[in-house]
Simulated assay, not measured.
Amino acid sequence: MDIRQVTVFGGTGFIGRYVVRALAARGMRIRVAVRRPELADFTRIAGDVGQVMAVQANLRFPASVAAAVAGSDAVVNAVGIPYERGRQRYKAVHADGARHIAEASAKAGAQRLIHISGIGAQQPRTGNAFVESKAQAEHEMNRAFPGVTILRPSVVFGPEDRFFNRLASAAQMAPFMPVFGDGLAKFQPVFVGDVADAVAHAVVDRTTAFGAYELGGPRVYTYRELVELTLRITQRQRRLISLPVWPAKIGAFFAEFLPVPPITRDQIDLMIRDNVTTPGRPGLSELGITPHSAEAILPMYLDRYRVSGRYDLTAPV
């Protein structure tokens, strides 16, 4: 398939910036569609001069979405918000935004549409507004652009992630590490670079159309094991304390009023539920990708949290 021009929504976000790099490495021209293009200049270095450009688009305004998509052979939706603030609501960004992207892509005649969702979005849990909005986004995508390829990663990790960096930061400051519930919920963390490669593969592979892929790393961990892995890499010795879920959610309720909440009730809900790939469902291997392990990648960026400092060559990895 001859894909030359790709529009990436959310190209300045954690996953989106890696998607831009992966597409640029394959010689495609990329439009990074964002609300404030002046803050997206750093994405230009992902490719050659003129290969990557930022364009203005606001998912709440269909006309701006249509303008960003016009003339593109493929479209990628990597938009996501971890919490709600002002006009940035889950419904407006995840669900309605997905509908606007899908409708604009279909009208513009785009050959491919890739949507990054999350494991569990196909089975929304009542009471979790974040997951329910992700599920609605998938529905809107399938309705308006039936040939959409949906990618559902587990917890995504990489240098800018909010998961391991927060655990490591908490271990620096707190005398103990909280574990919500029994800490036995299962996770299958996947490297952000592998997710980006999956997107790039799906963009050019027409056989991935009409499909949903669950993306997970090579190993399944409990939440408690991920906390212990973080402590081992950062050389911290902290006692793990199990916190009852409901009191923790009460604290999260008040935390949600902060400008940047350290945690939300929806996030706590996600930490006590399994988030692993479904046996038999297509994933990274079907996309020709061998996943990187957390043990191989985490020391490359969590080393800055070590007790002995980043440049201690005797530190265990």
Rank of each mutant, 00 (worst) to 15 (best):
residue 204 V to R: 08
residue 293 S to C: 02
residue 125 R to L: 15
residue 170 A to G: 05
residue 213 Y to R: 01
residue 304 R to H: 09
residue 72 S to Y: 01
residue 22 A to C: 07
residue 259 P to C: 07
residue 308 S to L: 06
residue 153 P to W: 13
residue 26 R to T: 07
residue 43 T to H: 04
residue 302 L to H: 12
residue 260 V to M: 15
residue 271 M to G: 09
residue 294 A to I: 02
residue 120 G to P: 03
residue 218 P to Y: 01
residue 131 V to D: 02
residue 144 A to W: 13
residue 251 G to D: 13
residue 121 A to M: 05
residue 191 F to I: 02
residue 207 T to F: 10
residue 277 T to H: 09
residue 179 V to S: 10
residue 92 A to T: 03
residue 11 G to Y: 09
residue 110 A to H: 15
residue 135 A to I: 00
residue 275 N to C: 06
residue 213 Y to F: 04
residue 62 P to I: 05
residue 224 R to E: 00
residue 91 K to P: 03
residue 207 T to D: 13
residue 19 V to L: 01
residue 161 D to N: 11
residue 270 L to C: 12
residue 28 M to Q: 13
residue 190 V to N: 10
residue 222 T to Q: 04
residue 167 L to F: 07
residue 10 G to R: 07
residue 70 A to P: 00
residue 226 L to P: 00
residue 164 F to Q: 04
residue 246 W to R: 03
residue 173 M to R: 04
residue 284 L to A: 07
residue 131 V to Q: 09
residue 118 G to A: 14
residue 201 H to G: 05
residue 139 H to L: 12
residue 17 R to L: 03
residue 68 A to T: 09
residue 143 R to A: 14
residue 176 F to W: 11
residue 58 N to K: 07
residue 279 P to F: 06
residue 148 V to T: 02
residue 52 V to L: 08
residue 236 R to D: 14
residue 278 T to L: 11
residue 16 G to E: 05
residue 247 P to D: 08
residue 52 V to H: 08
residue 311 Y to R: 12
residue 132 E to F: 03
residue 40 A to K: 08
residue 86 G to C: 09
residue 106 A to C: 14
residue 139 H to N: 15
residue 14 F to G: 04
residue 13 G to D: 15
residue 277 T to W: 05
residue 50 G to A: 08
residue 52 V to G: 00
residue 177 M to H: 09
residue 103 E to F: 08
residue 216 G to H: 05
residue 54 A to G: 01
residue 126 T to W: 08
residue 57 A to L: 03
residue 78 A to K: 00
residue 254 F to V: 11
residue 7 T to L: 06
residue 4 R to K: 08
residue 291 P to E: 06
residue 249 K to Y: 07
residue 102 A to I: 15
residue 263 I to H: 12
residue 316 P to F: 03
residue 177 M to Y: 13
residue 6 V to P: 00
residue 207 T to Y: 05
residue 301 Y to G: 12
residue 300 M to R: 10
residue 291 P to F: 10
residue 61 F to V: 05
residue 301 Y to A: 03
residue 212 A to G: 09
residue 122 Q to R: 11
residue 265 R to T: 04
residue 33 A to G: 02
residue 128 N to E: 15
residue 119 I to H: 05
residue 273 R to C: 14
residue 1 M to S: 09
residue 114 I to M: 00
residue 116 I to R: 01
residue 68 A to L: 12
residue 289 I to G: 14
residue 48 D to V: 13
residue 259 P to N: 01
residue 89 R to M: 01
residue 216 G to W: 00
residue 85 R to W: 02
residue 68 A to H: 04
residue 308 S to F: 10
residue 280 G to A: 14
